[in-house]
Design a binder for these strands. Sequence first.
DNA 1: AGATTGATCCAT
DNA 2: TGGATCAATCTG
Length: 179
Amino acid sequence: MKRRPLARSFYEKPTLTVARNLLGKYLVRERAGGLFSGRIVEVEAYVGPEDRASHASRGKTKRTEIMFGQAGLTYVYLIYGMYHCFNIVTEREGYPAAILVRAVELESGELVDGPGKLCRQLDISRAHNRHDLTLGKQLWVEDRGERLAPRMIVRAPRIGVEYAKEWAKKPWRLRIKGL
DNA sequence: AGATTGATCCAT
DNA sequence: TGGATCAATCTG
C-alpha cells in the first residue's frame, strides 16, 4: 500500500481547524511486523503562549521549544514518570501550539482511550520526539477518505488541566460522537 | 481517594 | 541542588 502522509500544509493552519480535521484520520506506525494504524477519535488543542493549560505558557524551554517549531513535527513527552503523550505541532514557526492525540480506534475495532495507553499501544516514546510526520517513515498520519460532518464532533473541556483556571473551561477537546 | 514514577523547572 | 509539579492510569 502506498504511503500518503499528510503534507505540512495540513498542519500549518489554526490549531482548532487542524484538530477538527485530524478526527477520522489514521495514525500509522511502522514496526518490524508491518504497519499498524489507529483511527483518531479524540484530540485536544493547546493553543498559543497565553493558554495556561499549555506547556508553552511558561515560555520556551528545552522541552517546550518544539511547540514553537515547525508544523507537522511531533512533541512527545513523559508524564508522571510513567506515560508518554503524543502531540502534533501546528501553526507557524514561533507560535506555540500543538494537538494531543487522546484516543484511537484500532483496526480490530478496539478503542484505545487515553494518551498514555495510546502511546503504549503504538509503541511511541520520547525517541519519537521531534519526528517529522510528513516523511511517511516510522510514524505518520494519513487520510483514508473519511469526512466527518460537524454534527459528528463533540466538543468538551480538556482533561486534567484544572490548574489552568479560565483556560481549563475552553471546549478544546474534540471527539467523534458516539465513542 | 491514593499510589505510582521520573523528567523538568525554578527558587531556596 | 532540592523539591514541587505534572496534558495519566490503575486499584480499591
